[in-house]
Amino acid sequence: MRQFFPVEDLARDERFVQTNMAERMADTRVPGGGSQTSSKKASSRSSTNRLTPDRHDASDRARGLMHGIMVGEIQALEGAGRTAHDFDAGDGSGDTIPFALKLDMARQAWDEARHVEISAKLSAWMGTEIGEFQENTVLFEAACSNDPVLRLAGVNRALEGLAIDVFTQMKEFGDLAGDPYLEFCEDWMLADEVTHVKMGSDWLRKVTENDPERRSRALEFQQVVDKLFSFGGARGDTAESSFQLARRFRELAGFTDDEVDTIAELDEQALAERKAAVRAMNAASAAN
């Protein structure tokens, strides 16, 4: 078995169709739309892009998000498993990671496996078929770095941080909608994710204790991934964002206020860039 495993080779059954960030960003449609159809009236029911039960498409949006969570958990499972496999136990230098970190990654693999189980059950409960929506493989891409410290930054802090934001939103949705399972399950998964983020924060500090340059590279990489995982501003503190930064849970997971503020700024930047890109594409399209 190879030491490092490329994202293109992730094994899936025939129900799954994969896509990547470039393909997703090539879709220039925006939720607000542009022409005169029913959307104006419909969106007027909800003052934000947030997933709330008063949206006309609440259940379908929740189904899509839950499927996204499920495939994200599959990739997180694969990523944790690969980190347990790819690096020998050692002192943390070079291609090695401490034995205890390997154990933590194996533990995370179990947690992620449970999350796949939970989200598959919830998907069935919500009437979603496995593979019904396309799978964006961006999460595993962040887990592919050859430097284990970058994996910690990209996966445990950025990806699992995103999971905290998404699960918080889904938990609230389940609570408001009165869904007895959704709120219950998301609460459990949220507890695990806070643990994973904290684990990442702790190990990142520990492994780079005597290597400030490596630490700053890792934090830089985390910012890149955080911006990527903002999905063009879909996550952020603004009303235009579909889901919010879960500040309280991020604090529990070891993020400082400054770090959360930085993520919020990155989200805003991503939203502005996405809007500018859509405007440019629409202008080019109109000119043709």
Binding site: A11, L77, E78, G81, A84, F140
Partner: peptide, 27 residues
């Protein structure tokens, strides 16, 4: 390590999940 590494390589979803669970048992 083997079970963890294999997770990404098996297409069968139930097997993928069990490997993740068992990976931790052996760790």
């Amino acid at each position: 390590e083997a079970l963890g590494g294999w997770i990404a390589t098996v297409p069968e979803l139930d097997v993928k999940m069990r490997l993740g669970t068992h990976c931790y048992h052996h760790a």
